[in-house]
Amino acid sequence: MSGRWLAGKVGAAVLTLVFVLVFNFFLFRAVGDPTSQLARLPGATDEQIEQLREDYGLDKPLLGQFADYVGDTVTLDLGISQTTREPVWDEIVAALPWTLLLVGTGTLLATLIGAWMGVKAATHRGTRTDDGLLGFSLFTYASPEYWIGIILILVFAVAWPIFPAGQQVTPGVEFASWFDEALDVVDHLILPMTAMTLMLLGQYFLIMRSSMVDVLTEDFITVKRATGLSRERVINRHAVPNALLPLVTLSAIQFGAVAGGAITIETVFSWPGLGELSFNAINDKDFPMLQGTFLVFSFGVIFANLLADVLYFYLDPRVQSR
């Protein structure tokens, strides 16, 4: 039963992925003749352009090009970057861990802090605590993340220089051990991670607060209190596990979207992740690179959705019987 359920979810994910693949191919064909971008020298001759067409297989009919594209993608050959002349896949593999580190820690922190704040606000509804938390989270929710990033740099890297303003490690330093290197990375991670956390926090807080307010009006909360449980234990053992369900799903689904949306934060902090990679690719009109990062972002969103489904399956017994 649960095996069939999982197979269905995976099937749907694969189908979406196929659609993305098709869309990704035709999107970049719709932008215009790729050779016009390739021939950077204004004085390129017709033979040179023809040669480029042949090199990239653009002289073949569209369907043949598509077959090539699918074949290459499946074998993880995403082409060569037009700016760095490195394989796109290698560049992505180098950038991916940095994005996952930034987005992963940011999402985790935002979920934990957002959940905690949500519980506090819901259990102190209508008090100053609630108002303060609401005000704070609406402020961070409304602030653009690049602005938050710039303010963080101004305060904690310029005015009061306790953290580095950008990049992932101090350049040109030989580290004595992997541990020292890890510490240096953490030092660099703190500001962009804070920006990421603040970007996500407001939304997660609001979801948790309203979910918690709903759960607290349920009859079983009164029944649990009536059995002699203290208010704190009713909240921690019964209200929170129920109220967390929508938040966990949201943050899992968001994880995929945020990986792509980290572009501004990664750019502000010169963080060498996928966001910066695609930002540079847009500036340089590096089509193979853009196509590659698009594919990875789509894959991230689809995978995160699948992950959310599986998580919900384990957290909410009601899903399992469906």
Partner: peptide, 11 residues
């Protein structure tokens, strides 16, 4: 309490 309402913790 009322039976079919949520008198028990659903999870």
């Amino acid at each position: 309490f009322q039976g079919a309402m949520n008198s028990l913790d659903p999870v």
